[in-house]
Design a protein around this nucleic acid. Structure first.
Lengths: 167, 167
DNA sequence: CTAAACTTTCAATAGTTATTGAAAGTTTTT
DNA sequence: AAAAACTTTCAATAACTATTGAAAGTTTAG
């Protein structure tokens, strides 16, 4: 397989995966592009490589900055801004986990805690409801704790411990 | 907080969470509804409770069956089909993990393996590319292994081991 | 200060995904 | 066999999300 072909395919595939990580397609593609690029790219470079408009490029670059998975850098003697991605996959995964925890897990935990205080009038529905909420809450809290460990962990420590489980 | 209000809020919140687990909003809401219901519900019940159309209900029920997280049951002496959800959150999480692994992780692994054989012509781009792909592949394979362990694990065993890590 | 170089915004629109509901299909009952 | 009870499909459309590109905004250089 030739390089340009492989590059194309990886960017495509990463676009899909990124999507399921909570990014959108273009965001993930820009990220893939920056990740495999040995040097930082400008907005214009990105527009060209992915054939997207200026506005689209700008918006998604900003979103990536917002997620904290790419960074802005300036090159001496140049006006343009360049961007580079975090290349350490582990750091990337941690960052994504952190954002998703904030955006997804925290809100549901809040609701579960609220809803946990529901008045149990005598009905069977209400009783079942309480039971399910309690379990969900327990599960969500465990997951939250685990995520936190993941986010704070050192790569090698984490995998070493985890790999022990996997045998 | 009153029961009906709490129920409403939980279904809403679960809808959002489900969405980020790869289900769609209605799918997740139907699931939430079945999860808190002490007895199985018919398509009609679901339509009423969530105020959705027959077609929509039918499609999403089928998708949930497809994911293997709800099941069809019949009640003696009744024509209608009823549905109930798996109530064990752990089992649910495993099922979701299994489906997502198939739908998301496997495709990217395939691409990474393919793309790993790229011809390294001398360019710096190609060199960087190979390096990144190698790391991604390594990460994805580790994640795959971990997911597999999760999918096959017993609840208590898994959490007990994991909780040790979390301290 | 003004022009040039670059970035950001945003209304218009294209593209995608979800939803409806009536019609067609299936199974069961009489 | 016909009617009743129920399920599934699917074309139309509504709702939502992504993208464009021109205009407005900002920063730097001369």
């Amino acid at each position: 397989m030739k390089y340009t072909e492989a590059k194309e395919e990886l960017i495509q595939a990463w676009g899909n995966l990124g999507y399921s990580w909570g990014l959108n397609k273009t965001m993930a593609q820009i990220h893939a592009l920056l990740m495999i690029s040995p040097k930082p790219l400008s907005t214009e470079d990105i527009m060209d490589e992915l054939s997207i408009s200026r506005g689209n490029a700008n918006m998604n670059i900003r979103a990536l900055l917002d997620w904290g998975i790419i960074s802005r850098i300036s090159i001496a003697g140049e006006r343009k801004e360049y961007f580079k991605s975090e290349k350490d996959i582990w750091a990337l995964a941690r960052q994504v986990a952190k954002e998703r925890r904030k955006r997804e897990l925290e809100p549901i935990l809040k609701v579960l805690r609220e809803v946990n205080d529901v008045q149990a009038d005598g009905t069977e529905e209400a009783k079942e409801f309480k039971k399910v909420v309690k379990e969900l809450k327990n599960f969500a809290e465990k997951s939250d704790g685990l995520l936190e460990t993941f986010i704070k962990a050192e790569e090698s420590w984490f995998w070493n411990n985890l790999l022990k489980l996997m045998k």
